[in-house]
Nucleic acid binder design. Structure first.
Lengths: 231, 231
DNA sequence: ACAAAAGTGTTAAGAATACACCCATGT
DNA sequence: ACATGGGTGTATTCTTAACACTTTTGT
């Protein structure tokens, strides 16, 4: 930050600043990402992350909230956890000109996107079956997924993807979906309970011709690091 | 990235984009950061991170290299490892107007900064004895230090701070300086050697009235994750 | 009674921690 | 010979990993 007044007034032309969001949610025990179908060129009618420009005077987080509301009908409080990821800045990423994009990851319990004039049919896609994507958005999603995997192992971030009351089986399936490998049931439960992040409730989940599951609740709904990293 | 042509042409005014760098190096077994004394307002003659504006058409990494060269006489290849940290974007962080700053961490074996017209006396300060800083640069350094601590535990990032040939004592001191706590000598050596990242050389370090130290060399000079995290 | 998912313990191997003395060198 | 930092091993505790059967419910 050492540009001078003259730079600001004359020579200096900043790149365009944009914000793109990767919203994750679990649907049927599989990790999904929210995509919208682009209404305009470039990449018209291709699938893309919800994103938009960031004007002077608003923070990137404010821009994110505004854009998600307008383009997907999603409110800031639908996201249990939001984290800035990375700033993508290669000159060629937008065919119209240099656009630097600050990216965010948002985790939600449930997403009910709404279509509108700006973007028809926002829709959730399984991360393992994504359509072809506009811009460098496939890279951004890959980056976000890696970050999520890492966060899951050393923080309590799962809380943001599960309902308030959850069974240990639901929890394990969430981990398996994101880490993309099977976990041992007994070891998983022993380890998770030892971390002491969740407490049993008086509720049970009855959902079929089998023994009902004990429901647990996270003691804290804020991000915290784990004493010992998970898996 | 959904702004329209009309936004680009008329209404849309992006914030200024800047890049700030946190360069770390070890001096006398203590972690140091490179700071420059600001030549102009605002914060004139206060210490600050080397930074500058990012023009349209250059990547933030290119801007970083250009700025470090111009303001501190440091070349890109003096940095063994560079990593993007975070993008700071609060509206009030620059008194002249909204400036969004993409920040980088750079690790060097040795820094020999050069003063010049743009910034007198770039200088290394111990992270535990920083002067008062311009802007939100104290926050940025704290963020970088946390990231460095984390990187040290799950990657081989130390290689970027040590000379090509190093003794296990030097290595341990580097860890102690950054993690800011003492480590057990025998356990440290056992664990580090088990990771198999370094190999002994035929060289020794003689530097006083005591037994000379075996010198090691990292097998790879690229960042890699450790199988088991360190400490 | 049977199908379906919930729930539960033990053993063995590996990793982390705590801890104290001898070694090689220069002066 | 002494001061200085370099180098080494073992015992204990904790953590991880592997593994299979019983329980509770709905139909």
């Amino acid at each position: 930050m050492q540009y001078t007044k003259s730079n600001m007034a004359n020579e200096y032309q900043p790149p365009i600043l944009t914000v793109d969001s990767v919203l994750f949610a679990l649907v049927d025990d599989a990790l999904h990402v929210l995509l919208i179908r682009r209404a305009a060129e470039p990449f018209k009618s291709q699938w893309a992350l919800p994103g938009g420009y960031n004007a002077s005077g608003e923070t990137t987080r404010q821009a994110m909230d505004r854009i998600l509301q307008r383009k997907a009908g999603i409110a800031a409080q639908d996201l249990q956890l939001v984290e800035q990821l990375y700033t993508f800045d290669t000159v060629a990423r937008d065919p119209r000109g240099h656009a630097v994009s600050v990216t965010y990851m948002g985790l939600a319990r449930k997403l009910s996107p709404q279509g509108n004039a700006h973007a028809q049919s926002p829709q959730l896609f399984p991360v393992h079956a994504l359509p072809s994507l506009a811009y460098d958005h496939a890279d951004i999603i890959r980056y976000a997924h890696n970050r999520l995997r890492a966060k899951l192992t050393y923080t309590n971030a799962v809380f943001a993807l599960l309902p308030e009351l959850f069974s240990l089986t639901q929890l394990q399936k969430a981990y398996e979906a994101i880490l993309d490998r099977p976990l041992d049931k007994r070891n998983f439960r022993k380890k998770f309970l030892a971390l002491n992040l969740a407490e049993p409730t008086t509720h049970q989940l009855k959902e079929g011709a089998h023994r009902p599951a004990q429901l647990y609740r996270f003691k804290r709904q804020e991000l915290q690091e784990l004493e010992r990293s998970f898996d």
